[in-house]
Structure formats: C-alpha cells, structure tokens
Design a protein around this nucleic acid. Structure first.
Length: 450
DNA sequence: TTTTGAGTTGTTCGA
DNA sequence: GTCGAACAACTCAAA
C-alpha cells in the first residue's frame, strides 16, 4: 500500500497555481485534503463575521472541486495535525505559507514537532517578505523604492502552475473530522449573510470570472477610473485574493497579457503597483508583527485621542453621520462586506480626523465587516490614514468629506445608491472645527516630543 | 561621506 | 477665479 500525503488548505482555496497541491501530486501518493478552523491560536485576530460567511462558501466550492474529499476540523491546529498524521499514517504534509504573525508562530511550532517531513511553499505572495530588503538588509519603509527597486528588480514572480489534470484523492474518513456546517461559519439569526453574499460569487470559479470581467471592462482606464466608486474600474478581487481563490501570480500575468490597448502601459503598471501595495503591507507586517496593535511611528503612542461616545461611533458604523459620501461608504460596507478604496480613505479620515477616534476602532470594525479583511492590508492601511504608518499620509492631509464627495461622485450615483437620505441628517460634526482640533492635537504631539 | 530631491491618494489661505 | 505656498517629518537612493 502506498502511503498517503496530507495537503493542508489554508489561505489557498484553489486548485490552479497551488504549489503545495502540485508538489503533493508529484509524489503519486493518495492525497488527504484538510482544512482546519483554528480560532484557538488566532486569539484576538480570529476571522471576522463577514469573512466567515465568505469562507463558508469558498470551502464549499473547494470541496466540490475536490469531489467531496475535503475534511474539516475545528480547534488548535498544533494538536490536530499530529493526530491526523498518526491516524492516517501519512508520511508527508504539504502547505502553502501564511504570513499572519500568529500563523507563523504556530506553523513553526508544528513543523518543529512533526514526525514526518513537511513541504511548505509560497502560494500567496509575488515575492517572499524576507527576499525584499534594502542593500543594508533592513526592510523598506517607503513604498516606491520597495516596489521599484526591491520587487521589480528582483527575479520575477513564479509563472502560474496549471490546474492539475488528475487528482489522486484519499477517501479515508478521519475520526475527528466534522462537516462544513459544524464549523458554524454562518450566522444563526438573522441570516444577514444571504443578502451580503448575493453580491458575490465566492470560490475559485467566481474568482476567475471576476478577474476576466475586470480585464474585459475595468483595466482600460484603470489609472483614472479607479478613484470613482460608481465607475467599473475596480477589480473587486481583494476577497478572492485574501482566501487564495486565485493567486497574485495569476492576476499579475493574466493582466499583463490583457493589456493590449492605448495607454495600456500606464493602466497595467498602476494595477500592478496595487498588487505591489499588497506585497508592501505583508512586508510591513512580517517585519513588524505588532503592526495591527501598535503604531509604527512610536511618537503616536502619546497621541491624545478623543474619549469614545458610543452613539457617535455607532453613527459612523451605521452610516448616519450626515456626510453623504461617508454614509454611503459605511452602508455599502455593511450591506456588501466591501467598500470602494477611495471611499475607505474618506471614511477612515472621518473617524480619525473628524471624530478624533483611535484608528484601532476603525480597524476592528473593518475586521468584522469586510469580506476581504486581511490583517496586513487592514493594519497597514489604517495606520497610513492615521499618519502613524509607513510612507503615511502627512497628518495635515485631512480629507474634506464634502469636497471628496463632489470630486469623486459628481453624478451622486454612488450616494444615491447607498445613502439617498443622508443629506436630511444633521451632520454630527462641523468639519472645519473638527479639522482645527485635529491639527491642534497633532501640533501638541510634535511639541510634546521636544 | 554628504547633499539633495522626491515621495499613492489634500486642503486652505492669501496674493 | 486662479495659483502657489504652507502645512512635518522621515526614508531612500542617486549624485
């Protein structure tokens, strides 16, 4: 009898361009595909509610692609993995690397205690974080040199692997496995996930369709159009990329092939640089594991944030601030699990610089409500807006929510879609007063320093 | 080795 | 109405 091998699916819920799966298949041994929901090691960064609903559908899709052979587990992966190996007598385990600090710590521990050999590969990033650094071997803190000099002059990303022509799957049921439904990823009541997921098509097929649609209608004019929430120039690939329903490599090379039009270079370069920001965020988190909790610029530890008034915070969360572009964004988020990038910046600026609340409150809300919630991107982006992150917006760059709405939603299509009644709500803050207060708080911080 | 200029996403003020 | 300056401080690489 041939020994079986384990493929541990994590944030790589696809068959195409999956290095761990391809390597496992090359052993010619039967494959035992598993997924573990590990809320134990994740502690405070366990997967948020909106993302769980997405994950349910993504796993369902993957299981279908694996002809129902995927086996599910719930609990501490460092306990579960050795048990599975013992029971199945598997002689090797394959996985694609994850980069959240708690996963790195956990996986390292698992690897050290394994009784069988382990094959970990890169299935989630174009360049490994440790491969990109300055000539003095310290990590970059500014995006442009990180991307141009660090990434683009490094060896190019892996060419995507083809979908395996044949799967050799083990059907032996593991005793401690549970059903997908037993993972309790969907909300009980009310079932808000149904409306939310009606905007999406989770899973590998949905991801590839979304990519093709973007390349067809969105890439041309991307550089300019991406700023306008009612235009079709957004990829909407972030949740698919987060769960690994497709790889950044597929996106990188497919978009390269699709760019045969006027100004293609500019649009394609800009789109690639957005993938570069994803790499940059992961690099920042890799070199600064406390990025989700602590300001990168430690000066901001002394920042005088306002005490939280829960009614005001709820008005921000529910989209009842009286600023239409802010309310539209927050309601889009709550309804769909997603928000347009430009609008994310506007609502984040509003929380931080108009309400003067700590950026972590926004980070936490996004973590729970986004289907693309990603520890690296979320933490790096909130810190960027707050001015305490890497290559951050200067603190005095304070968005005027009225001007931003007029500039980026001039037809009011986006506002009318999500918050047509917002103009009837009395604004909860006077922007010019709030702006002055923010500038004063920042000035006090600078003086405090000396 | 030191200097210099540039760096995702803005707003306001005053000439 | 238009336009340039100011709003801070720091990173990085080329000169």
């Amino acid at each position: 009898m041939v020994d079986a091998v384990i493929v541990w699916f994590r944030q790589d819920l696809r068959l195409t361009d999956n290095p761990a799966l391809t390597s496992a298949l090359s052993t010619n041994a039967p494959i035992i595909p598993i997924y573990i929901l590990d809320d134990v090691n994740a502690k405070s960064w366990k997967i948020g509610d909106a993302s769980r609903a997405w994950l349910y559908h993504s796993l369902k899709s993957l299981n279908k692609s694996l002809d129902g052979a995927l086996q599910f587990f719930s609990g501490d992966a460092s306990d579960i993995i050795p048990k599975i190996i013992k029971e199945t007598k598997a002689n090797k385990i394959f996985w694609n690397r994850c980069y959240e600090p708690w996963r790195i710590t956990r996986d390292k521990k698992i690897k050290e205690n394994l009784s069988v050999s382990c094959n970990s590969e890169n299935g989630s990033l174009l360049w490994e974080p440790w491969a990109i650094h300055k000539s003095d071997e310290t990590p970059y803190r500014v995006f442009t040199p990180f991307f141009r000099k660090g990434c683009l002059s490094a060896p190019p990303p892996r060419i995507p692997l083809p979908i395996p022509s044949k799967l050799n799957l083990s059907r032996t049921k593991i005793v401690s496995s549970v059903s997908l439904d037993d993972l309790s990823l969907l909300p009980k009541t009310p079932r808000w996930d149904r409306d939310m997921m009606s905007y999406w098509n989770a899973g590998e097929t949905g991801a590839l369709n979304q990519l093709n649609e973007f390349l067809d209608v969105g890439l041309k004019g991307y550089k300019e159009g991406r700023n306008f929430p009612s235009k079709p120039h957004i990829s909407r690939l972030s949740p698919h990329l987060h769960f690994g329903e497709l790889s950044p490599n597929q996106v990188w090379y497919e978009s390269q092939g699709a760019g045969a039009h006027h100004k293609a270079e500019t649009d394609l370069d800009h789109f690639h640089s957005e993938l570069g920001w994803r790499e940059f965020s992961h690099s920042l988190l890799y070199y600064n594991p406390d990025l989700p909790e602590q300001p990168l610029n430690k000066k901001f530890l002394n920042f005088n944030w306002a005490d939280v008034d829960n009614e005001m915070l709820d008005r921000w969360k529910n989209g009842r601030t009286g600023y239409p572009i802010v309310d539209a964004g927050m309601r889009e988020l709550y309804a769909t699990g997603y928000m347009h990038n430009r609008v994310r910046m506007i609502v984040a600026s509003f929380l931080i610089k108009d309400l003067h609340y700590h950026w972590r409150l926004g980070e936490d809300w996004f973590w729970d409500t986004l289907v693309d919630a990603d520890l690296a991107n979320n933490a790096a982006s909130w810190q960027w807006v707050a001015g305490c992150g890497a290559d951050a917006a200067p603190f005095f760059r304070i968005f005027n929510p009225t001007t931003q709405g007029e500039k980026f939603d001039p037809t009011r299509d986006y506002i009318n879609q999500w918050a047509p009644d917002s103009h009837t709500i009395k604004p909860i803050v006077d922007h010019s007063v709030a702006r002055d207060r923010s500038l004063a708080a920042f000035k006090a911080l600078s003086q405090n320093e000396q």
